[in-house]
């Protein structure tokens, strides 16, 4: 008996509604496959491009301990990229194709990485705010309907907790330091706070794919809900170490038990997403250069493998 696509689609939806997980060989609607490839490759690219702003500071870390921590974190991000690329490959796309899409500017990555890291405190702010926001997103994705993606997220979340905490600890340390160190930390906070909030994407009323992705349990919470979750847990952490939230409208609502925030500048977000952020061009250039410069290493490994096969 051959099922029609509509029947298959109903069965697929029923499976998801029952809370079952979709595995690579299971039948899935073409659009589910496409949407996941788009999301997962964007996510993998973000991990990889995310190494660049932090990589800038590895040679300038103020102590050997900080250097070791930063190296370990950046190596983790490379690993995250690999987990997600290989999870995305189970959907029938080749890693080389995804990487080409990144290098030719066809694929997107998280806009946060198009902001520069201007001082050492930025490394703390990235760990605490950027990885903190990523954890909120990724914890939700760990329960998504696609098995390989969800398993990659579970692995990643464990490692993100180290990224998050080391960043916060670093800022906490600076906030107990000299006046200059405190100002440095506050300056980093001022520049990264709003872009971190934008990481959750536009408000759901402006997010065209949301309804479909939620029906398929690829997305389990709205962008605004996740953003709120991040704000609620982060504001008290900022207050505890004396950092000010650069939002005069931020206040705690006693009735809802949530923080309310000021308007997000979505024009800036659109601008950065469409390629005009402070570092878009530089990031792509660095990626392509790393790929080109590393070619001889890959060629050598391949030649070595061939030689030993015979």
């Amino acid at each position: 008996m051959i099922a029609t696509d509509t029947e298959r689609e109903l069965e697929f939806q029923a499976k998801i509604d029952r809370g079952e997980v979709i595995e690579p060989k299971d039948w899935m609607p073409e659009r589910y496959r496409k949407q996941l490839i788009r999301m997962m490759s964007q996510h993998a690219h973000s991990e990889v491009v995310g190494m660049l702003p932090e990589g800038n500071w590895i040679t300038r870390a103020p102590s050997l301990a900080r250097k070791a921590i930063l190296l370990a974190k950046v190596q983790d991000e490379g690993g995250h990229g690999l987990y997600i690329y290989s999870a995305a490959e189970t959907l029938g796309i080749d890693r080389g194709e995804m990487i080409d899409q990144l290098h030719t500017g066809k694929a997107k990555y998280s806009s946060i990485f198009n902001y520069p890291t201007l001082n050492w405190a930025d490394i703390g702010a990235i760990g605490w705010l950027v990885d903190g926001a990523a954890i909120v997103n990724q914890t939700a994705l760990a329960k998504c309907s696609y098995g390989p993606y969800s398993r990659a997220m579970i692995r990643i979340c464990k490692e993100e907790n180290f990224h998050h905490k080391q960043g916060y600890q670093m800022l906490a340390y600076m906030m107990r330091g000299t006046k200059e160190q405190q100002e440095m930390a506050q300056d980093a906070m001022n520049r990264f706070w709003w872009p971190a909030l934008m990481m959750f994407g536009p408000s759901d009323t402006d997010s065209p794919n949301s309804a479909e992705l939620m029906r398929w349990k690829v997305k389990l919470h709205s962008n605004d809900d996740l953003r709120q979750r991040f704000i609620d847990r982060t504001v008290p952490q900022a207050e505890a170490i004396g950092l000010k939230i650069p939002d005069p409208k931020m206040k705690f609502n006693e009735t809802t038990r949530h923080y309310e925030h000021g308007e997000i500048d979505w024009q800036e977000f659109k601008n950065v997403v469409s390629g005009n952020g402070p570092c878009n061009r530089e990031r792509l250039r660095a990626r392509v250069k790393a790929d080109t410069d590393g070619k001889w290493v890959r060629d050598a490994a391949e030649a070595y493998a061939k030689k030993h096969m015979n």
Binding site: S86, E89, T90, D94, R95, G96, E97, E302
Partner: peptide, 14 residues
């Protein structure tokens, strides 16, 4: 596991 039949410029999958 990948089921891809697309020719790849990437190394073998393990």
């Amino acid at each position: 596991m990948s089921e891809s039949n697309i020719p790849t410029n990437q190394w073998k999958l393990w």
